[in-house]
């Protein structure tokens, strides 16, 4: 954890610069992993872990308060996690509306796909995005919780 009170050295400038630059590209890598997930290695979980790793470096470099000042979206981690969970649940259970079993694909195998450029749209993509959001949200919540320990003990 970061020692802001002068005990031990603050992380050096390299770490801070890398930490600042890393989150944006990590989101790109995550997006690639989610899209590739159906033909090659990758899925929402791995993507989520990668983004969370990048974010965790920010926490190490500038501390919990600093990280949340740089990336204000981190403050909404619980909401992100719940949104992700709801999205995943929705994509799992919506076939009930059609009277089908939960976790069925839509469109079903063999049916024509909607394509967006080279991206093939189907409900599993939604599920993976949900898992991605859930993982990022939960891991950031943990970082938030444990990143503040030292400060809390002192007060």
């Amino acid at each position: 954890m970061v020692r802001r009170s002068g005990r031990g050295a603050a992380p050096d400038s390299v770490v801070r610069v890398v930490a600042r630059m890393l989150p944006a590209p990590s989101v790109m890598v995550a997006a690639a992993l989610i899209v590739k997930g159906y033909a090659e290695v990758g899925d929402g979980f791995a993507a989520g872990v990668i983004v969370a790793l990048a974010v965790s470096l920010t926490y190490v470099a500038v501390g919990a308060d600093g990280a949340e000042a740089v990336l204000p979206v981190l403050r909404h981690a619980p909401k992100i996690a719940v949104t992700g969970l709801l999205l995943a649940l929705a994509s799992g259970f919506f076939p009930l509306v059609y009277g089908e079993e939960p976790v069925s694909h839509q469109p079903a195998p063999g049916e024509p796909l909607t394509k967006f450029g080279k991206l093939e749209l189907f409900t599993q993509l939604l599920m993976d995005i949900g898992v991605f959001l859930l993982v990022v949200g939960v891991l950031v919540m943990l970082l938030h919780q444990f990143g503040r320990l030292r400060g809390e003990e002192k007060s």
Binding site: V82, L86, L89, L96
Partner: peptide
Amino acid sequence: MLLSIALLLPWVAGAVLLIA
């Protein structure tokens, strides 16, 4: 159908209630 709803209902509601 009933079976799936019995699972879905508390799951969704629980997730929403967790942030409330």
